[in-house]
Amino acid sequence: MEGGSATARKVMVVVDPTREAAGALEYALYHAVLEHDTLFLLHIENPNAWKNPFGAFFRRPLPPPQPGNGVGSTSTSTSMSAEGGGGGGGGGEVYFLDAMKHACMAAQPKMKVVVEKAEMVDGKDKASVILAYCTAHKIELLIVGQKRSLSNAILGPRRGGSLRGMDTADYLIEYSKCTCVAVQKKGQKAGYLLNSKTHKNFWLLA
Rank of each mutant, 00 (worst) to 15 (best):
Ser128Ile: 12
Ala106Lys: 09
Pro65Phe: 00
Arg164His: 13
Lys51Gly: 13
Lys51Met: 12
His31Ala: 02
Leu25Tyr: 01
His31Gly: 03
Ser79Lys: 05
Met12Pro: 09
Gly165Glu: 14
Pro64Ser: 15
Lys10Glu: 12
Leu141His: 06
Arg59Ser: 14
Pro61Lys: 05
Glu20Met: 11
Arg164Phe: 09
Leu150Phe: 12
Leu142Pro: 03
Gly165Ala: 09
Asp16Gln: 06
Ser77Leu: 10
Lys126Glu: 15
Gly84Cys: 04
Leu29His: 04
Arg159Ile: 11
His43Phe: 08
His137Lys: 02
Ala22His: 00
Phe202Ala: 00
Ser149Met: 00
Ser176Val: 05
Ala127Tyr: 07
Ser73Thr: 14
Arg158Phe: 13
Pro65Ala: 11
Tyr192Gly: 05
Gly89Asn: 06
Leu193Ser: 00
Ile44Glu: 07
Gly55Ile: 03
Val94Met: 03
Ala24Ile: 12
Asp98Gly: 05
Gly4Pro: 02
Lys186His: 02
Asn48Tyr: 09
Glu45Arg: 04
Lys110Tyr: 04
Asn195Val: 03
Val113Pro: 02
Ile139Val: 12
His137Thr: 12
Ala190Asp: 10
Asp16Ala: 15
Tyr133Trp: 13
Gly160Leu: 13
Asn152Met: 14
Glu26Gly: 04
Asp170Thr: 11
Trp50Val: 15
Ala32Ile: 06
Met111Lys: 02
Pro47Cys: 05
Ala169Ser: 02
Gly187Asn: 06
Tyr27Trp: 00
Ala106Thr: 14
Ile130Thr: 11
Lys189Ala: 10
Ile143Gln: 00
Ala99Leu: 11
Ala206Val: 06
Leu193Gln: 01
Ala24Glu: 05
Lys197Thr: 01
Met80Val: 07
Gly85Trp: 13
Tyr30Arg: 04
Val71Ile: 11
Ala132Pro: 09
Gly70Met: 08
Val115Asn: 04
Tyr133Met: 10
Lys138Met: 07
Ser151Lys: 11
Arg60Gly: 15
Ile154Asp: 08
Lys186Met: 00
Asn48Glu: 15
Leu205Lys: 15
Pro157Val: 12
Ser176Arg: 08
Gly160Lys: 10
Lys117Cys: 05
Asn48Arg: 09
Arg159Val: 13
Lys112Cys: 08
Ala8Ile: 04
Lys110Ser: 14
Val33Phe: 00
Ala99Phe: 04
Tyr133Asp: 10
Leu204Cys: 03
Gln184Ile: 09
Leu131Gln: 07
Ala118Asp: 08
Ala99Lys: 01
Pro109Asn: 02
His31Ser: 04
Asp167Ser: 07
Cys178Arg: 10
Ser75Met: 14
Pro63Glu: 10
Ser5Lys: 06
Ser149Gln: 02
Thr135Phe: 12
Gln184Trp: 06
Lys101Ile: 04
Gly156Asp: 10
Leu41Phe: 01
Ala169Lys: 13
Cys134Phe: 01
Thr76Pro: 08
Ala24Gln: 05
Pro65Gly: 01
Val71Glu: 10
Ala22Ile: 01
Pro157Asp: 05
Val14Gln: 10
Met1Ser: 07
Val181Tyr: 01
Ile44Pro: 11
Glu26Ser: 09
Lys185Pro: 08
Tyr175Ser: 09
